[in-house]
Design a protein around this nucleic acid. Structure first.
Lengths: 209, 209
DNA sequence: CCCCCTTAGTGAAAATTATAACATATCCTG
DNA sequence: CAGGATATGTTATAATTTTCACTAAGGGGG
C-alpha cells in the first residue's frame, strides 16, 4: 500500500465500483472478476485492477474478488466505514432536493439540518429536516460535529457562506454554486457545476456534426 | 483551429471561464489577461492560454483578451450560440429542482417538459413546467426537437428510460442516476453522480489525517 | 520613432494517467 | 497429483495532459 498520490479519477471509479458491488451483493452474487466489474461500469479490467492496486491486494488469482469483502475494503478506503454529518446551506429548490436525496443516505451521509437567510424558509421542514437561520450554523456545526457542508445558494452568496462554514469548523464543502471559491488549505472543496455538464454535452454534440 | 482531440478537462475549464467572463461583462470589465482569468477561476495562466489555443487566437499580445468577444467565442465553441430544448424524466425532488434551476436557463437550456410514470405527478406543474406521462415522451421530443434529456429517476429505471428517449431521438443525456448506462454510439451521455462527489471529499479528508 | 513593458501564442519537457503484456497464483478436472 | 484454464498483481509501454520557458507582438512613454 504505497501512499503515492492517487489519481482523482481512481477515486471516482472506486466510488462507482463500490455502488456496483453493492448491487451485486443485493443480487446475492458472491464473487466477481475484474473483467465483469469493468463490464458493469463501462470500464476496462486493467483499470479496475490498477485502481485497486493502489491500496492493496483484495482478490485471489485465478478466482476473482469476493464481492462483499471488496466492497467493504473500498468503502473503508473512501472513508465510508462511518457515517458523516452534513448540513446544507440554501433551502431553495436544489438544496431541498439534495436534503431528500436517497443516494446520500444510502452511503452514510446524514443531512442534519438546512440553513437559509430567508425568513420565509426558516422554521419550515423539508421531510424530516428543519431549516435554521444561517446565524445558527456555527453553533449547530460544533454541537453536531458536522464535517461536510453542501452549498446550494446563489453564486454571489457562495463565498460568504464558505467563510462562515469554514469558521464553524467544516472540513469539506460540496459546492453547487457556479463560482470558483477560495478555501483555506485544510478544507476540501469540490464543485459540482450542473451547467458545465450540460455544456460538455452540447460541445460533443456539435463536434459530431 | 486544429481539430485534434480536445481534452475533456479543457472543455470543463472553458465552461468555467465562460461563466467568469460573463461575470466580468456584467461588471463592465472590457479587457482581461490570462493571468487574471486564471486568478478568477483558480487555475494557471498557461492553462488558460493552452485551452484557448486549441480553438484559435482570441487575444492580443501585450494586451489581453476582450472580455465580451472572448466569451462570445467560447460560447460558440461550446455550442451555446443557440438555445437547447431539454426534457427531464423523473419529476421527483431532484428532477423538479433541476427544472427550476436558473443556471440552465442562463446558459440557454430550456426545459420544455417533465415526464414521469406516477399518476400522482402527471398533470402537475412545477413552476411553468408541466409533468407529462412518460408514454408521451417520444411524440413530445419529436414535435419540439428536443436533443437533450435529463434523467432523474431511480437507478433501476434509468436504463429503461434511456432506451425510450434514445428511440425518441434524443442525442444527449445528462444522467443523475447512480448507474452505468449503455447508449448507442451516436448518443452522448454524461453522468453526474452526487454521492461520488461526496465520497471524493471523504476520501481526501481521511487522507489528511 | 524607438525602447521597454506587458502579455498572447507555442513548442518542448515533465508529469501524470491509461493501456497492454506478462508473470504468478489458484482452482478444477481427469 | 499434474496440467490446463482462469484471473490477479505488477511491470513496462504508450498516450495524454500539464507545466515551463521562450518567442512574437502590441501599446505607451520619453
Amino acid at each position: 500500500m504505497k501512499s503515492h498520490k492517487i489519481p482523482e479519477a481512481t477515486i471516482i471509479r472506486l466510488s462507482v465500483y463500490s455502488r456496483y458491488l453493492k448491487q451485486l451483493e443485493i443480487n446475492n452474487i458472491t464473487t466477481i472478476s475484474s473483467v465483469d466489474i469493468a463490464r458493469g461500469v463501462n470500464g476496462s479490467s486493467a483499470q479496475v485492477r490498477k485502481d485497486l492496486a493502489y491500496f492493496g491486494e483484495f482478490g485471489m488469482r485465478g478466482v476473482g474478488y469476493n464481492v462483499k469483502e471488496l466492497n467493504s475494503h473500498i468503502m473503508k478506503i473512501l472513508g465510508l466505514n462511518t457515517n458523516w454529518n452534513v448540513v446544507i446551506v440554501g433551502a431553495g429548490n436544489l438544496g431541498s432536493a439534495l436534503s431528500q436525496y436517497k443516494g446520500f443516505q444510502e452511503r452514510g451521509f446524514r443531512v442534519l439540518g438546512m440553513f437559509d437567510n430567508d425568513p420565509e424558509k426558516i422554521g419550515r421542514r423539508i421531510g424530516e429536516i428543519e431549516v435554521y437561520p444561517i446565524s445558527q450554523i456555527k453553533e449547530f456545526v460544533e454541537i453536531n460535529t458536522v464535517r461536510i457542508c453542501v452549498i446550494a445558494v446563489p453564486a454571489h452568496y457562495a463565498q460568504e457562506v464558505v467563510a462562515g462554514v469554514v469558521d464553524a469548523g467544516v472540513k469539506a464543502i460540496l459546492n453547487f454554486a457556479p463560482r470558483a471559491l477560495s478555501v483555506p488549505e485544510h478544507v476540501e472543496i469540490r464543485n459540482v457545476d450542473l451547467a458545465v455538464n450540460m455544456e460538455i454535452l452540447t460541445f460533443n454534440m456539435c463536434l459530431n456534426k
